[in-house]
Design a protein around this nucleic acid. Structure first.
Length: 262
DNA sequence: AGTACCACCTGACGGC
DNA sequence: TGCCGTCAGGTGGTAC
């Protein structure tokens, strides 16, 4: 699940459950999700500390410790968080487990092991090093246009490029392009000012709507493509049947009538 | 700069 | 029922 809206939901969840409590113990159940930090390094860095605040940038979640260090969480394709009391409630694919002094636990769950848990010195340094683009929710139209202007690629690939905009993935790029009525392979260079303006509007509208609904595609409005994102389904506008195609190396769903190619 | 393909993993699903 | 290919909301490397 984890694209920008999911990450925002994870951030709020962590904020409302896991801040300001001593971390008594950290257990690494799969070292594969660790970045550069070792198992011992993670334990030494976290045990006896507290989580004090969080920051989200695109698909990355940064958790500030009470000694100034930062925990970095990236959720890959299948990652998530669960805060719980009883051991039996642990999610199936718990990879890292934080034990708080109040007896509660926070699990970093990730079936496919593409997620990452790491310790870093400073989020801004990390963002600069990875050359991550700006978070689309932080961008006004001028800045948004500035990020896209001069690009030669397809619009779906561009929206999903984390070095251009940070946070949009395969699912939400499909939704944004449906709302903006753009075919996923439309060349960015062909978009005029009005098209860019509309794309910016739809990007913000889609991401905010998803966050408001807890990033649960099941409760999105019926007017959203995501409620109909299967080949042959009716387009929510009643204009045709949803088709799939390839764009940016991923499967893209779209309505050929609403989003004509070319 | 942009794209296509592969790899990293686990699991669900459809076809036979 | 069981096996097999394919695909899945991410990212990084390589090659063209």
């Amino acid at each position: 699940m984890p694209e920008l809206p999911d990450l925002e939901v994870f951030k709020r969840y962590l904020d409302s459950t896991s801040l300001h409590q001593y971390i008594e113990k950290t257990e690494v159940k799969s070292g594969k999700v660790l970045g550069s930090v070792s198992v011992g390094g993670l334990k030494r860095g976290l045990e006896g500390r507290k989580f004090e605040s969080t920051r989200r940038h695109g698909k990355h979640l940064f958790v500030e410790l009470d000694d100034g260090g930062w925990l970095l969480l990236h959720f890959g394709m299948t990652g998530g968080l669960k805060y719980y009391k009883d051991v039996g409630e642990a999610p199936t694919h718990t990879r890292v487990l934080f034990y708080f002094a109040n007896g509660r636990h926070l699990a970093f769950d990730d079936q496919r092991l593409f997620g990452k848990v790491d310790l870093i010195g400073d989020p801004d340094h990390f963002i600069a090093e990875k050359k991550l683009g700006l978070d689309p929710l932080d961008l006004d139209f001028r800045a948004f246009r500035g990020r896209l202007e001069g690009r030669k690629g397809g619009i779906k690939a561009t929206l999903m490029n984390q070095q251009i905009l940070a946070g949009i993935g395969n699912i939400y790029s499909d939704e944004i392009l449906f709302q903006a009525r753009l075919h996923p392979r439309t060349s960015v260079a062909r978009l005029d000012g009005d098209a860019l303006h509309n794309l910016h509007e739809q990007t913000r509208r889609v991401l905010h709507a998803a966050i408001e609904r807890g990033a649960d595609p099941g409760v999105l409005p019926d007017s959203f493509l995501l409620s109909h994102r299967r080949e042959g389904e009716d387009c929510p506008r009643g204009n045709g049947k949803i088709q799939k195609t390839k764009a940016a190396g991923r499967t893209a769903y779209y309505c050929p009538a609403c989003q004509p190619e070319g």
